[in-house]
Design a binder for these strands. Sequence first.
DNA 1: CTATGGCACGGATT
DNA 2: AATCCGTGCCATAG
Length: 473
Amino acid sequence: MLLQTQLPLLRPQTTAHLAQTMTLLGLTATELYQKIEAELATNPALELLEERYCPNCRRKLVASGPCPVCSQPRTLDNSDPIVFISAREYFQFSGMTSAEEEKSDDDFIADCEDLPTYVLRQIAPELDPQDYRLTVHILANLDEDGLLSLSNLEIAHYHHVPITRVENILRIIQRADPVGVGAHSPQEALLVQLEALGETQAVPPLASKLITEGLELLGRRQYSELAGLLGVSSHKVREIAQFITQNLNPFPGRAHWGDIHQSTAAEPKAYYNPDVLIKRLSEKEEESPLVVEVISPLAGRLRVNPEYRQALQEAPEDKVAEWMEHYERASLLVKCLQQRNHTIMRLMARIAQLQRMFILKGDDHLEPVTRAQIAQELGVHESTISRAVANKTVQLPNGRIIPLKKFFDRSLHIRTEMLKIIEVETKPLTDTQIAHLLSERGYPIARRTVAKYRSIEGILPAHLRSSNRLAVA
DNA sequence: CTATGGCACGGATT
DNA sequence: AATCCGTGCCATAG
């Protein structure tokens, strides 16, 4: 609302017929991406600025000013998270990992493992036992996106082996389930996936050229330049780009971090591209501030093209209405985007502060908080928070991707406490007994409620539980 | 008689 | 206004 008055509106009276709020807050990064892309394609008044790197940490920055991570004076109280908008190449992930329709029990267990273990398990049979150490070393150095930051040379050198051996192993790794894991860059991951895909289905012939030579441009959506580069029409380029975004995933590691807890309760849907990343500033130190990256689906900053505004003055008679429309839509979008970013940043800052322990330590440290409380603290309407929280996902420092909703789960800590009790039980405890134990530990819960929690967690009733667990309902 | 799940109610949350 | 959640009551299964 404050922003509104400061915006340079060319003709305030004509904006009246437009909705003064475009609902962006409720959108996922994926949805936002689509929305903006559509707008960019049709609205010449919108302009995507060159992306900007922090020279130090290579993060892509969206807001102007110094890199919020690197320029931070480290004297901060570590309960204060560093929150900022970070741009990433954004791809919608849908295809790939097609092997996931029906999960066998094995796969279910696999999901509970970390990524390196999961990959190792698949490829172990193919490996020469001699290469084990080497493989483990490689897998241990995957980052949270499933990419490898070491160069082949470094690895070869470290193990005193010829580089071809490293390459061979990498080839095997990259073909393992999240296809493309262990690639050195998003680009390489895409190429590997493309190749794998090409073995079973037709792929656009120019796709690999587009990836090798035009990925930068693709990230910026500069289709006409790409068309020139590839020597085909820009329509064709869009087609290929669409194929890529729908079938390939530049961050293979993000495919396998679904929310394990919920998977019993009709929620087989895994989450891929998180909307927010939370990390620790320093991996080593326990007491380090959290770094919260709110993902902006676009690399580069979006703004209203100043030249377009200029051109508006001299618009030919018959175009003036259309151009005006463009201009207004563009500035509205930019404004709403800013507002969305602003709200999400404030929200995440507060969440990261409140739930620090949960983020670092896990489920049983969740502080029960309601959206209403946060809304009051931030001075916004409750529904604002609701929208901001809905349908979004967060990647925690441990790599798990969870729905943002989970931060507002009122009973999670009690349920995990209950799980712990059941975990160590010697003989199956009845609901009444569990209820009693829980109240002794400070959670006064009705017996009936224990039963509900059990079913949420997919735990069988006592008489069907033979002293050991491992029963999947 | 005990343990549990279904149904439904009321209050809180969204 | 609609939905979610904890709970009590009651029927049923063992």
